[in-house]
């Protein structure tokens, strides 16, 4: 037996309209949230990157980095440190200099940890035309594997060294990933644009010095 017709059809229709609207809004939010998800497992825990330019400190939350010098050279050598007693540092074995397979790029930067002590630095040079170069293991003084620690609030200046064919350089940037221990996941990373390109870059590369010393890292004024 059919019931009596609904006495309030208008209310039911507006109720349906609000349901449709609410569903549409929720659906849009869902799609937006889904688009923000990172699907690749590896990318999800990759270092979190901040970018900036060489003329200013770049804040990567767990550390800040400021590039103070970019040098091009045909060969590099390790500057030896002070001996006991604080005598004159000798200029290092310039005859132990290593010739580049291309050109050496020596980037000096001040790295200051923010809240926790960090120990390891991994650096990469992005040429700006699609290739990435890792830092060279040739120099013992360069920032790299086990070295001195970066304490919060205390800037430490060190160099990272790259070797590459000069024709690959277009508009280089250096990525610094500074972390503690062995785990790089979700660590801080800063991509610093060296602000060198075109004729300025070419002039710098052509004027590459014969030999550049790579100093040991040292703490700087806070």
């Amino acid at each position: 037996m059919r019931a009596a017709p609904d006495p309030r059809p208008a209310r039911r229709r507006s109720g349906r309209a609000s349901t449709v609207l609410a569903s549409a809004v929720l659906l849009a939010l869902l799609l937006g949230a889904q688009a923000l998800r990172i699907h690749d497992d590896e990318d999800r825990t990759a270092p979190i990157e901040a970018s900036g330019a060489a003329s200013e400190p770049v804040d990567a939350r767990s550390f800040t980095v400021e590039v103070v010098d970019v040098a091009f050279a045909r060969s590099v050598y390790d500057e030896s440190g002070f001996s006991f007693g604080g005598d004159e540092a000798d200029a290092g074995a310039a005859d132990g200099a290593v010739e580049a397979n291309g050109v050496w790029v020596v980037v000096t930067a001040d790295i200051t940890a923010a809240e926790r002590t960090l120990e390891r630095v991994e650096a990469e040079l992005e040429t700006g035309e699609g290739t990435t170069y890792g830092s060279s293991g040739v120099s013992m003084n360069a920032l790299g594997s086990i070295g001195d620690a970066f304490s919060p609030g205390i800037p430490r200046r060190g160099a990272v060294v790259f070797e590459l064919p000069p024709e690959r350089l277009a508009s280089p940037s250096v990525r610094f990933n500074v972390f503690s221990g062995l785990d790089r996941r979700l660590s801080g990373s800063a991509l610093v644009d060296l602000e060198l390109s075109g004729s300025e870059l070419k002039k710098a590369v052509d004027g590459a010095e014969e030999a550049v010393a790579v100093p040991q890292s040292e703490i700087r004024k806070a």
Binding site: R116, A149, S151, P152
Partner: peptide
Amino acid sequence: GRGRVWRPD
């Protein structure tokens, strides 16, 4: 006070 932590030197 800011929550920064140092280790002995």
